[in-house]
Computed example of a mutant assay.
Amino acid sequence: MQAARFMLKGRVQGVFFRASAQKEAVKLGLTGYAKNLPDGGVEVVAYGDAGAIEQLEAWLRHGPPGARVEEFYREPLGAHEAPPDFDIR
């Protein structure tokens, strides 16, 4: 199982980014979470198949309609116990 953390900045809050990311992640069979950050960014952590994480990354780079991702960062995560579902925090 793979895991990755994504940090996004730009117009990513107030545009249903977290809910849309959750929907996409669940569709891809991933678990993890999406949460708003105090600096206006969004953090997404995903666990699952490497190919599915790559597909989520491609989606996160543009996000839902109305979003504008201006900064994007991916960090691989070491071994962690995967959560049972994908939450919005």
Rank of each mutant, 00 (worst) to 15 (best):
L56W: 01
K23G: 03
P84H: 10
E81G: 14
K35V: 11
E75P: 00
P38V: 08
D87Y: 12
E70D: 13
G66L: 14
P84F: 04
N36D: 07
F16C: 13
R89G: 09
G29H: 09
V45D: 00
Q55L: 06
R68L: 15
D85N: 09
A82M: 10
F86L: 04
Q2N: 12
L28K: 01
G78W: 15
I88C: 13
M1C: 15
P38Y: 11
R5I: 09
E75S: 11
V69C: 07
G48V: 01
M7W: 10
S20L: 12
L37P: 00
E71F: 02
Q22T: 01
Q22E: 04
L77I: 10
A19L: 15
R89Y: 10
T31F: 04
E54C: 03
G63F: 03
L28C: 03
T31S: 07
Y47R: 06
M1F: 15
L28D: 01
R18S: 05
E57T: 04
R11I: 15
E24M: 10
Q2M: 14
E70T: 11
L8I: 12
H80W: 14
E54N: 05
R89S: 10
L8C: 06
A34P: 02
E24Q: 13
E24V: 06
R68W: 12
A4L: 04
D49C: 05
A4Y: 00
M7H: 11
R68C: 14
V42I: 14
L28H: 02
Y73S: 13
M7A: 15
D87M: 09
H62N: 15
P64S: 13
A52C: 08
F86M: 02
A19I: 14
E54F: 05
A46Y: 00
D39C: 03
H80A: 13
P64M: 08
V45K: 00
R68P: 04
D49N: 09
V44N: 00
P84Q: 12
V69P: 02
L77Y: 08
Y47M: 08
A50F: 10
Y73W: 09
L28P: 00
L60M: 06
Y47H: 12
R68F: 12
V26W: 11
Y47A: 04
D49R: 05
N36S: 07
L30T: 00
V42C: 09
R5P: 00
G14I: 12
A52S: 09
L37I: 08
R89V: 12
G78C: 12
R5M: 14
D49Y: 08
R18T: 05
G78I: 12
A58S: 11
L56Y: 03
V12T: 08
P76V: 05
Y33K: 10
G66P: 11
E24T: 07
